[in-house]
Design a protein around this nucleic acid. Structure first.
Lengths: 195, 195
DNA sequence: ATCGTTCCGATGCAGGCGTATCGGAACGTC
DNA sequence: GACGTTCCGATACGCCTGCATCGGAACGAT
């Protein structure tokens, strides 16, 4: 068994490079050569890890999807004692990717979403992430509010968060405005109890 | 003055071709040659109409932006007598592009939005469209509801509509589900008066 | 009929793309 | 130390891209 290499680690490293590039110039700015250069590996190495470019993109999308949902759930377990309402607020602002330091992630996500509209494999991965988040929020809303239909409320919240992210990215809203909108919605959601 | 040609008409024709192609395979599937073929003109003609590819995309985006906002406002003036509430509902479902026959437009729009995240000229055009729509909705909401802050309510509605469109496109929601979410939000928006 | 201008179809160009190939370096095994 | 396998860097290939060029068709003015 000769010359073994940490394949999984390299794949993650490459996925990271994909995200950086997609953040800077969109998904069409992601070329194998640039990815290899950014990840500081040779193109041959990239080709060894992923048979095709699409395979690489799929992996990268899965990667960021997992990172985002992981952060949301982490945010939830990190504040178990507080009211379910504030937990919901934190989680929602988390997936809206409104903070400056999440901007890159948001751009990457948007790039993938757009590509997914014409690429079934990518769309499948996105659906999985959204389904997971929707279930999570529905449960949370069920606990925190007296909403008649937690499932619908979760869908609303998810779509609103995504829309706000988009509007911030293209500069139609400032992060502060988006946050105000989101807070307003959440407040209305679980009655008029203050946070 | 020799050989004159309907430039503006040709530009619109080309913009239409851009949209068709963007709908089918995303904005990166839009090449000058394909556009020319789809518009049934030669590449030379395309190059005469638009000095550069970006110029063409900008024009196309403006084109669809105008078409969408025009349709929304048309929907509004077409139903002046009804309550402002139902008018609001119609307009909102219109911009959410949920109907099957608007799916293409939605895909095109999403493609441009993603590209705009890394292309300031495109982002500027989008901002203009969104600003116009937001003002329109704010006015409508001011008339139809007792909302304390019509501006924020308009932003919410706009973001929600966009998010729903996206989620339908990638298959996370069915059009019917999205419509239910939107209706629920609207109902809650102007009190509990039935539509 | 001739000219002058406007238009455009065809073609060329340089560069970038994703992928395939392959010779040899690296390294566990014997 | 020699072997066998695994890996990968370099290079090549074919294709497609956006853009530039240009010869000539189209057509109003004279």
């Amino acid at each position: 068994m000769p010359r073994q290499v940490d394949h999984e680690g390299r794949r993650r490293r490459i996925a990271e490079a994909v995200c950086q590039l997609a953040d800077e110039s969109g998904l069409e700015g992601v070329t194998l050569r640039d990815v290899a250069a950014r990840a500081e590996v040779s193109m041959g190495a990239v080709q060894r890890c992923f048979r095709t470019k699409e395979e690489m993109l799929v992996f990268a999308l899965t990667h960021v999807g997992e990172r985002i949902t992981a952060r949301v759930t982490a945010r939830l377990v990190a504040s178990p004692a507080q009211s379910a309402g504030t937990a919901l607020g934190h989680a929602a602002t988390e997936i809206a990717l409104l903070q400056e330091e999440r901007r890159a992630e948001a751009r990457v996500w948007l790039a993938f979403v757009a590509q997914a509209a014409v690429s079934p494999p990518l769309a499948g991965i996105l659906r999985a992430s959204y389904a997971e988040l929707q279930a999570l929020f529905a449960r949370l809303i069920g606990e925190a509010t007296a909403a008649a239909d937690p499932e619908t409320a979760a869908r609303t919240l998810l779509a609103l968060a995504d829309g706000l992210t988009t509007h911030v990215l293209i500069g139609h809203l400032s992060p502060a405005e988006a946050l105000r909108v989101l807070d307003g919605h959440l407040t209305r959601l679980w009655g008029d109890r203050a946070e």
